[in-house]
Design a protein around this nucleic acid. Sequence first.
DNA 1: TATTCAATCAGTCATATGTCGTATTTTGCA
DNA 2: TGCAAAATACGACATATGACTGATTGAATA
Lengths: 216, 216
Amino acid sequence: MISIAIAEDNKLLARSLQEKLLAATTDIVVKFIASNGNELLKYLEKDSTVDVVLMDIEMPQMDGIIATEQVCSRYPHIKVIILTVFDDDEKIFSAIQAGAMGYLLKDESAEEIIKGIRMILEGGAPMSATIAAKTLQLLRNPQPLPRQMCDEGVTLSNREIEILELLEKGYDYKKIADQLFISPSTVRKHLENIYHKLQVHNKMQAVRKAIQYKII
Amino acid sequence: MISIAIAEDNKLLARSLQEKLLAATTDIVVKFIASNGNELLKYLEKDSTVDVVLMDIEMPQMDGIIATEQVCSRYPHIKVIILTVFDDDEKIFSAIQAGAMGYLLKDESAEEIIKGIRMILEGGAPMSATIAAKTLQLLRNPQPLPRQMCDEGVTLSNREIEILELLEKGYDYKKIADQLFISPSTVRKHLENIYHKLQVHNKMQAVRKAIQYKII
DNA sequence: TATTCAATCAGTCATATGTCGTATTTTGCA
DNA sequence: TGCAAAATACGACATATGACTGATTGAATA
């Protein structure tokens, strides 16, 4: 028998999820439905014999990311599957950092969710298709988050920053172009603009200045 | 109709894989079976109308990682699924770095492989359970391979270090030469030696690695 | 609606760079 | 003292890069 907890502030959604799981299986039981992270943690203090938590991200009081962090550190035996509508890089990365071992989008079918539950208990990592793809992208490019800079008057566009970050890895134009799915000509043009803005004349100087200005 | 190419040095395995795909579907056609990376690339030069490559890692002549890199950079429209027995972190990471968007273990069923093919074409990233889990682990721990302390053997001379330090400032050969009262030719030769020692191929990579190794 | 701006791409040209050889001189140290 | 390593230097070749000119597109915005 597999014990599940659900953390989801929309009670209707939570209920319908519970019913779907109930209807489709005989060995999965929903022990608790929490409407935020606090509630979930309070419940787990009394009864931590839960195998998997299905966790929404957007919740009042304590969001799913923080809750995931807490659950994973306090109860390492509990696996967390994020179940949400968000699929932006930052949320995915935060959730994984927090310790989530699964990340499914809410439009997944009940069967997929059930497969995910079984998969996670077998040591797998259930992910929706687009999430898996983004995960790999994040792995290739380990710094998609800090787009803010404390410049001194110079402002680079996001694209220009992306290019600088790849440049810093020692990539040539072709490689950067492939990475960003644009042509080498465009990379060169971006670099040209970057050089003007930073008042430099080659790659190394551009990277130096960018680091100095904390742009990358 | 989905066109597949298979790169797999074990001809028996390749053939049986082809037959399995053929038996289980009507819309997937295996256009080519290559027994190594070279063969695959040669084929793709003549006909690159392939949607997905199923790629073994361990192959003679050109292994699957290099081949993946080549395929992904030359033919961005082609999706690569690694299909191998290896599941160690380094191989997975290399494959993803190389551009693979799927990573299945060879013990997957034909149905799973077919699902993977469809998934990758929808923008997903098919991964075997353990692979997905390791991927997330890698993402949490952005430096899982630093135990290769092979930098022990690398020693740069004082002169080489001087040159690297000037290089890091963004100076060109002429400027470095002036600074050190030697000819640009000599600077180039030093750089050449540095590249060999650090196993890199341009200034930026050399500086990166030197900083990483705390040489400068 | 007009205008700006980010992002895209192409082509030219001079220069810089990376990779080969090859070769001489200095120098540290066994 | 003699040898290996380090430092010095040049030529040649293909490729990468930096600088410039010019252009199109779409999104934001005034």
